[in-house]
Structure formats: C-alpha cells, structure tokens
Amino acid sequence: MHTVAGRYANLIKAKARELGFDFCGIAKADFLEDEASRLEIWLKNGMHGQMNYMANHFDKRLDPRLLVDDAKSVITVLLNYYPEQTLPEASDDYKLSKYAYGTDYHFVIKDKLKDLLAFIHKEIGEVGGRAFVDSAPVMDKAWAKRAGLGWIGKHTNLINREIGSFFFIGELILDLELEPDGPITDYCGTCTRCIDACPTDAIVGPYVVDGSKCISYFTIELKEAIPEDVRGKFKNWIFGCDICQDVCPWNRFARPHQTPAFDLHPDLATFTKTDWEEITEEVFREVFRRSAVKRTKLDGLKRNITFNQEA
C-alpha cells in the first residue's frame, strides 16, 4: 500500500481504532448491483410491512454517489455493543434487545464519525463527505460486507469472525479515492440455528427475513395492535429481539464492549417484572431518556408488556 490512496486508507483506519471503533473497512463507492434485485423482490413481497420508509429513495439506497457528489469511497466502521452486564435472565423476565441497554447509539457513533471526518480534513485536506448512522437510505450491511468487515448471515445480520454480530454500523461517504478492501467468504456453512430458533418464522429462508413477521418489527416499528396470530410467540421480548443472534455460534466470540455509554442503565439492573408492569411516565422518561426505547413511547412499551402477559 505505497500509493497515496493506500497511505490515506491506513491513516484513517488507525484513527478509527484510536476513536474506539472495533473495525474499519473501505469499499469503492459504486452502484450496489447485487442488492438491487434483492431489495426489489423484498419490497414487492411486502416484507417491509408498515416500514414505508424502506420503499423510499430506492436509487439512493443503491448508489452512494446520489448522497454525496462525486463519492469515491465508503468507509464503514463497526462498534461493539455486547454487554458485560445483562438484564435479569429468569425465564419469565421481560427482555430488551441488548442494543437498547444504554445511550442511543446514533448519538455515540455520529460523534465519533464527526471526529473522524474532522481528522481527515486536518490531515488530508478539503474532502467532501457525510457521516451516516441510520440517518439516510444507506445499506449499512451491504457496505460493511463490501469493505471486508464480515459476511451477511442467514439471519441477514452482518457477522464478523472475531466478534460475532453484536455491533453497530456507521459510514463516512467521501469524494476521496482510498484503497478499498475486498469482501470475505461466507462462513455460515450448513448451520440453520437462527432459522430454527425464530419463534415467528420471520427468517423465511436462508438470507431472507420477512421484516413484517419479526418480533423487533412488532415491538418497535408497528404502531397499531399486534396481530393475534403471533400471540404467545414473543418469549417476553418487549423491545426488539436478539434470539437469532443469541443462538448464532459465531457469537461465542462476542466480548464485552468498551463504550461506557452502552452500559445497562443502573435502574434496569434491578427492574423486576412488577416494575415493568407498573412503569410510569416519570420512570420511563428518566430510565430511557437517552435510549432507543424512547422510539416506542410509553404506550408502545405497555402494549408490548400486556401482549406478553396475555399470551
């Protein structure tokens, strides 16, 4: 890597590590040919449910040059969120997806990406670019795969050989030529643990998830009543669901994150079933002030708790 593009790539990756990102990879900012037909079929089959935003900006999702003028490189970063301390895990305790334990990741990653962009401006010069954390139609997992940070598993999450799949993804799209990394092999093999474990059969086939059947969709995205035909299948998940990741053999390599902002809120560590069932607006506001759980609002969380109680 003695080219200028190679030198810059090494410089950026070193800084990303210094900022606390676990991995950083680079892909050429091209049209996502492989994803185009897959996305089209997925949308046509209604697998996005009521997530209408998934059908918007189809072209922008597939072509980063429509998001950043003259884009040349997509830098993808991964930030581990696997917790050291988890919620109480008795079989009848309510469960939150691990990604929602602490501060909303959008804030944390956006700040680190801004620092990375500032470093690029300082060290390399006037570079046009934008930071993305779920904030625009960017296909995170596709870019991470292209950048060699992992492969897309049968549950459609990105899996990294060193730390599994419990991480957040963010991007910088730049008009700067950088040495790209190559994709890696798929290491799922014949394993179907995620498909077999999904209680609502949302993983309708290897590498295809019907989003409208996913517990995360029902407990976060769906704004109306949860359909009766999935009653009794939620296994006490009240915000998100980690089942397909929890059963994945690659997550035996998951290690506790190093980002204090992602730690379990101290009040949640002692939350009992009764605390959840009797949660007030005041407690909700305090405990989830900076959490992703705010998305579902108190009414949504209560709906999810009641739905699990009535099963």
Results as ranks from 00 to 15, higher is better:
188 C>G: 14
182 G>N: 14
186 D>M: 11
182 G>H: 14
180 P>Q: 12
179 E>G: 04
202 A>N: 10
186 D>W: 03
181 D>C: 06
180 P>V: 13
200 T>H: 07
204 V>R: 00
190 T>H: 06
183 P>E: 15
176 L>Y: 04
188 C>M: 09
199 P>H: 09
191 C>Y: 04
177 E>S: 10
187 Y>L: 06
182 G>A: 11
184 I>A: 08
192 T>A: 02
186 D>Y: 05
197 A>Y: 00
177 E>I: 08
200 T>Q: 10
198 C>W: 04
194 C>N: 04
200 T>L: 03
175 D>L: 07
195 I>F: 02
190 T>P: 00
202 A>L: 05
200 T>S: 04
178 L>T: 15
196 D>T: 15
195 I>V: 14
193 R>H: 08
184 I>N: 09
190 T>C: 03
194 C>A: 06
177 E>R: 09
188 C>S: 14
204 V>L: 02
186 D>I: 11
178 L>R: 03
177 E>Q: 09
191 C>K: 06
192 T>W: 00
175 D>R: 11
194 C>K: 01
196 D>R: 07
185 T>E: 14
189 G>L: 09
205 G>P: 00
180 P>T: 15
176 L>A: 14
191 C>P: 08
199 P>M: 10
205 G>Y: 02
175 D>W: 05
178 L>D: 13
192 T>S: 03
193 R>V: 05
184 I>K: 01
196 D>W: 01
199 P>L: 05
177 E>D: 15
185 T>C: 01
198 C>Y: 04
200 T>G: 07
193 R>G: 00
197 A>D: 08
202 A>P: 01
192 T>R: 11
183 P>A: 12
201 D>W: 02
196 D>S: 07
203 I>N: 02
175 D>S: 13
